[in-house]
Design a protein around this nucleic acid. Structure first.
Lengths: 205, 205
DNA sequence: TAAGATACAGAACGAACGTTCAGTATAGAA
DNA sequence: TTCTATACTGAACGTTCGTTCTGTATCTTA
């Protein structure tokens, strides 16, 4: 690879990194190109040289984010044996590696800001969401097949799981909580065992 | 009350109503004063006559929203006997009466858009959230005291419940789902009984 | 009915925004 | 070294935004 190509890739990376950090902090609409310029030391024109628009930059970040998540997970998944363990593992990855579930909030904001966005961008994003739900669904189905979970409606379960996850990151930000990991684990435990009293059963911890 | 006072209150109401609908649809930042003008037939100046700023208008809506929720709930609460029933009842109110949980999303966007907002507004809003969590906490504590729920960490539980609720409304919008009520009920059922297999137990539907 | 307060209209403003573009520097090819 | 495609700059543009301000109509009160 050329020195020039290398430099070009580097600055594109720098822009993407800064944009991601800012959008995670402040959301999509509230993050301006000008702020990305200040954060990178690059120029406005240069951002538009590497990305065709703000929307395009955001889509780039979403796709990267989605990809990284899958890669990280598939490199960790084998550590866990049961599906139950995997659920906890997902919680761990969300809290630790992924401080970027703030990002899903930005995604939501972007989607629901209404006002026309390019057809392709919208399609690409909804597809990513459906992928995520499909991922959950497969995992939960495995749990059922292997006798770990009750035979529930997996479509609903996958949405409920994703909702819980998304809601948790939202709430833990809003209420400015610490010990987020413990909260996530509590949530998984509730998801698994519920809160209802089960007379004569001991599901301690 | 005067005819003039009456008219004044009416238009203030009209403005608030239109603003609420728009903000629920498109979020806080993406809703412009101009759009509220178009929706009401009122003028820009008039909006600023009734509300001191866009931020102030939003705070007004939040407080109203919070109040209405409490009123609606306290008028329904007596219908339900067990706390378990009340959880389902809350889900019902969220889906039916409150198509405005989209509003909590707008609240989130508003809070996390960072960029300075008035001290008092921020304080008022975080207080509303803490109220909501406190409401959950009391309800769940009652459930424990009355022997319906296991003796879990109620602080965590209240956040988990709120997270689930917020996440559900978010997801059901994003994925454009129908049959939202069934989904909410599924979620409550999971919250109560979990998904883990409980050998020898029959907790069907 | 006159005076004054209240309710409303809409032009105007300055700031912030995403985007474009003419121009410049630089690295690789010739 | 000269040429050219690539990488980058920053001023400028056209909108859109929240907010302000001057002026006007309308209702209340004296």
């Amino acid at each position: 690879m050329n020195k020039k190509q290398q430099q070009s890739e580097d600055t594109k990376r720098r822009i993407a990194e800064a944009a991601k950090a800012l959008i995670m902090q402040k959301g999509y609409k509230s993050t301006s190109i000008e702020e990305i310029v200040e954060a990178t030391g690059s120029s406005k024109g240069n951002i538009y040289y590497h990305f065709k628009s703000k929307e395009g930059l955001f889509l780039y970040l979403i796709e990267e984010w989605d990809l990284e998540w899958e890669q990280k997970w598939s490199s960790k998944e084998h550590q866990y044996t049961t599906i139950t363990d995997k659920l906890y593992g997902i919680a761990d990855q969300l809290v630790f590696d992924d401080l970027n579930h703030p990002f899903s909030k930005a995604l939501d904001e972007f989607l629901n800001s209404s006002e026309s966005m390019s057809e392709d961008v919208e399609q690409r994003i909804t597809q990513i969401i459906r992928n995520r739900l499909e991922f959950n669904q497969k995992l939960l189905q495995q749990g059922i097949d292997q006798g770990e979970f009750e035979n529930h409606n997996v479509e609903h379960l996958s949405i409920i799981f994703e909702s819980l996850i998304a809601g948790l990151s939202q709430m833990s930000q809003m209420a400015k909580l610490d010990n987020v990991l413990a909260l996530y684990h509590s949530a998984i435990r509730v998801l698994l065992y519920g809160i209802a009293k089960k007379p004569g059963m001991n599901n301690g911890r």
